[in-house]
Amino acid sequence: MEPNSPSPCRPSHSGVRLQVRELRFLDKGPFSFIVAAGECVGLSGRSGIGKSQLLRAITDLIPATGEVFLDGKACTGFLAPAWRSRVTMVPAESFWWYDTVGAHFAVEEEGGNLLKNLAALGLDPQAVRWEISRLSTGERQRLALLRALQKEPQVLLLDEPSSALDAHHTGLLEDFVRQYRERTGAAVVWVSHDPDQLQRVASRVLRMETDGLTEVSVSFPEHQEREE
């Protein structure tokens, strides 16, 4: 993707990080696209078209045919848990299984990094001690993102990550993801129904139909070359 990277070498912040090739699931597809290291690609499409399922297929949570590569290495070459730790999906609805927020985070994370991240997303530093039941939807959404970042995934699949946030916190979240992307060279796939948001966060936007993806112009996301 990037002109000044001759080979897709792994640790660098350049080259193709995520490649999805001919992915098919549940009578849908084939879907093919690539995301460069440090790039964010937007994914749009009408409700129910299967955007979440596409992300689930990429993270290998549902059976699919076709192939997905991380830095040129096929998904099948990883153990499934290792794959999901590197290609991590943050679903629109998050689930929590312990009573408190902190129990879902690794112990060493509870220190500086987590506190800094909480502040960056506009969350109370005390949030780690809170009980899950008292969290608002928006708080859950942001905490779910932090929880997913614990293992520093190289690919982040975000399913409507700011659907429950107001404009101010949406902005904080967008900045936070951008900084993560720039710092680690992670590739991001961002699902959203908000064209303005995709324009802000993504360098390209793909529109999903049942039989494939089409790239749409970022400035006019509603305008497509091939619409059924």
Partner: peptide, 9 residues
Amino acid sequence: VIEQRLLLG
């Protein structure tokens, strides 16, 4: 919950 835990690796 189970799928969430799987998603987290």
